[in-house]
Nucleic acid binder design. Structure first.
Lengths: 206, 206
DNA sequence: TTTTAATGTAATTAT
DNA sequence: ATAATTACATTAAT
């Protein structure tokens, strides 16, 4: 098991590596020195319980680090802090559980840079257990938009129909319509706000 | 008068502007043209009765728009015709809707003083529908970094507190933490990738 | 050129 | 179902 400070590499990562107690101490000192301008309370910042020795009871919520570290460096002891590792479609780590196959891939390192970019892009979604971001095609978007103009609350049957015709999961359709409604609502709210504001402005010029 | 592309913050906003009849016509044409791949029926999509002239008999269910639209605009019948005006609060855009004036402003840029050029840049940003880039002070960064070390997911109360103490909008705080997390994650991902790659490389040399 | 504030949106979570 | 929030890709300002 690695110590917390050893589990990361790179200078930029030092920000999150400092032991919690030390960090807490430093911030406390900062707050105490500059009283008026920056005197927010540690408690409100943490929003958490903390032990009296200055060590917070709960680790910062950084799922990507926990999952990745335990995966690559040999496993973490606390499964509750783990993010489910769903090896979706990372070609580098998923498909080749066979060591012979792995070696084969490794020896073809000149091709490594070819797949490098792809696996790199998918790496995040992959280890985090999150669905890879769906990239809708232009045609899919067009159809969805056209349907949305007519019916922004399609029932399950329509969604299933769309899913078949567009070669998408019905879940994706559902989510898309939810977000599309949110988007329309947002833009409408903003325009309304501007209209009210302009009304006020106009009335002021009279 | 501004061209259509310039009058909105993004192309995505154009989606909801087409008249319903036209929309329906377009969708019908689309279905008829691409028979095999996208041939869902309009009836099943609508789930509604519709008149033969192509105008749906029933309004789409959009409770959030209907109420306020009728309130401010005096009861518009067709919510699809609403154009979301997203020009935020651009003083240039609002005050000088006259194209001659705008051109005058643009041509005189080189005669502006430093501060005037700054404000011009700001106005240009607004004109383009993008918030002017916030330049955080050293002290603001320091406080934000210190908080980030302890809690990289500050809740609304902490963000509001920070906004007050640092004299920033809460939105800026939110965005800063989002970008800060992305930065940390990116550097972490890169170092991890190098680790994995080096591990493989080492195993090749055995 | 590099860093990072800002934006858009798919996905998730909580109410 | 909606609103808030997050991750992530991208744009653009410094």
């Amino acid at each position: 098991m690695l110590a917390e400070g050893e589990s990361m590499a790179g200078p930029a990562l030092c920000a999150a590596n400092t032991a919690a107690a030390q960090t807490l101490h430093r911030v406390s000192g900062f707050v105490e020195n500059k009283t008026t301008q920056c005197s927010f309370s540690i408690e409100s910042i943490l929003g958490l319980e903390q032990k009296k020795d200055g060590i917070p009871a709960v680790k910062p919520h950084r799922p990507w680090m926990d999952a990745r570290t335990s995966l690559v460096l040999g496993g973490d002891s606390n499964p509750h802090l783990q993010i489910p590792v769903v090896c979706y479609e990372n070609p580098l780590f998923q498909a080749n559980s066979d060591p012979v196959q792995e070696e084969k891939v490794l020896k073809c390192e000149k091709y490594f840079s070819v797949t490098e970019r792809l696996s790199f892009k998918r790496e995040l979604s992959w280890y985090r257990g999150r669905r890879p971001r769906t990239a809708f095609t232009r045609n899919q978007i067009e159809v969805l938009e056209n349907v949305f103009k007519i019916n922004s609350y399609p029932g399950i049957d329509i969604r299933e129909d769309l899913a078949r015709k567009l070669d998408l999961d019905e879940d994706r359709i559902q989510i898309w319509f939810q977000n599309r409604r949110a988007k329309l609502k947002r833009s409408h709210r903003e325009s309304q706000f501007l209209m009210v504001k302009n009304t006020f402005t106009s009335s002021l010029l009279e």
